[in-house]
């Protein structure tokens, strides 16, 4: 077993570690995953940790292995994040997040006149595409407005 004493945050037995998050986005990652104080298990995070490619955030969620769909939402705000499933203190599986083609109920439309911002019983729906510049663009399926900047600011 690898020596875990160098881990700045306590090692976890079972759970999920999300690594290589853009510095400053850790809290948004929790938001996008819908993880809040009333979730079971310890959630810890590291902000501004030095990494090979500059500063990064790391989030560790104990006792919970998140499903693929939940995890891929992270790519909207942290496209380079990696997900490590931890079992018995060891990294069982490591994968990159993949940009989904469609997200529901994750982001709010920026068009104030959009029906998805009304009291109607619907969730926001967006198709997700990569722009020519490589950024992420969300397009509202109701009103077709695009969100291409500061996606994290529009999380539901």
């Amino acid at each position: 077993m690898k020596d875990k004493r160098d881990l700045k945050v306590q090692a976890i037995g079972n759970g999920t570690v999300i690594d290589h998050i853009e510095a400053g986005q850790a809290l948004n990652v929790l938001r996008i995953l819908g993880i809040s104080a009333n979730c079971q298990g310890t959630v810890s995070f590291l902000m501004n940790a030095p990494g090979a490619k500059g500063r990064k955030d790391v989030v560790k969620i104990e006792g919970r292995e998140l499903n693929v769909e939940e995890l891929n939402r992270i790519s909207l705000i942290a496209p380079n994040a990696t997900v490590n499933i931890i079992r018995d203190f060891e990294v069982l599986q490591k994968k990159n997040v993949v940009l989904p083609t469609y997200v529901e109920g994750v982001v709010r439309c920026i068009n104030p006149n959009c029906i998805s911002n009304s009291t109607e019983p619907i969730k926001s729906k967006f198709s997700v595409v990569r722009s020519e510049g490589g950024g992420v663009v969300l397009r509202c399926l109701y009103c077709e407005h695009a969100i291409s900047e500061n996606i994290a600011e529009h999380l539901v």
Binding site: C114, I115, S118, E120, I122, L141, Y142, C143
Partner: peptide
Amino acid sequence: QDGSAHMASEFSSVPIINGGDG
């Protein structure tokens, strides 16, 4: 409201024609 016809089509059991939304 923008997108209301699209929403209506999600709740309707008959075809919707959009005569202008938003």
